[in-house]
Design a protein around this nucleic acid. Structure first.
Ligand SMILES: [Mn+2]
Ligand SMILES: [Mn+2]
Ligand SMILES: [Zn+2]
Ligand SMILES: [Zn+2]
Lengths: 148, 148
DNA sequence: GTCCGAGATTAGACAGAATCTAAGTTAGGA
DNA sequence: TCCTAACTTAGATTCTGTCTAATCTCGGAC
């Protein structure tokens, strides 16, 4: 992983290696919780402001374009991001919007007849329901509200 | 379909039947193109302003809650909506963000072991790639840009 | 039919997310 | 070393969507 491999993946994608980009990538690789741009910006600047808000957004955009980072859109909430490591699906909580990874497994692609002239790139699964925190606890009536 | 069945589905979901709601539902049922809230607002008010922006948003929210309408989040674009008729999956164009329906077929749910205590509600497929307008036309090198 | 109250609508203010602008900085190749 | 394109930056701006507070309207109770 570390610095050197991040530099590799950036440069092999035509992106310069900069401290700001390194911070974003490093943070995403260490935090699988699908942070928002705002959370990433905060985390990266916690110790010593070293990246502006615009740069954080710029870099997230560039990293997504380069295919190193994935953006996950959630209805009614801000976008979330993860470092594209192992391939996986996503679970999205109906209630708190949390995004969690689901182990990858192949899903049947649509019949090419129903695709027409469209060009298929990928086929991902979105599993929806209630996350562990939001699911009613067994036994009790309703458990505490998970706000995150 | 028409007015009476819309009234039915609204009232059976505890929502009053109002002209504004009827317009939103009718528009969604006649336009399978997954319009945005702004597009719906415009369309409904084209002839004769009869719904405020706030009401359009309020009604979309209520209709989604009632399960009559579905909201589709697309990375980096505004939300899109469709009337929940026949069950289907979605195709999202990488390039122009267009959302298109894909015939429904059952997809294998994740192993319950990998779900843990989470409660699964639905399992939808998101197919990604290039839509007909954005796919390079056969023969030619690159075709005109689809901006929609 | 009249009255009442919850539900619905409205204009405009507001909030949050993301992008843009224009100026300055950096870094890598000639 | 110098030049230039890539990058960063603060702040303004745009765009979506929500909230507020006042008004309206529908549908049941009487
Ligand atoms: Mn993930
Ligand atoms: Mn649809
Ligand atoms: Zn949850
Ligand atoms: Zn397209």
């Amino acid at each position: 992983m570390d610095t050197e491999s991040i530099r590799q993946s950036l440069e092999s994608n035509g992106l310069r290696f900069t401290p700001q980009r390194h911070c974003v990538m490093a943070f995403l690789m260490e935090h699988a919780g699908h942070p928002t741009a705002a959370e990433i910006f905060q985390a990266v600047n916690r110790l010593d402001p070293r990246s502006s808000r615009a740069t954080t957004y710029n870099n997230l955009r560039d990293l997504v374009q380069a295919g190193l980072v994935r953006e996950v859109a959630v209805e009614g909430r801000s976008a979330r991001f993860d470092a594209k490591g192992m391939r996986h699906h996503h679970f999205i909580c109906d209630r708190c919007g949390k995004v969690e990874d689901v182990d990858w497994y192949d899903v049947p692609k649509p019949a090419s007849s129903s695709l027409g002239k469209r060009i298929l790139r990928e086929c991902e699964l979105i599993v929806r329901g209630l996350c562990t925190g939001c699911a009613p606890a067994k036994g009790r009536r309703r458990m505490g509200v998970e706000t995150e």
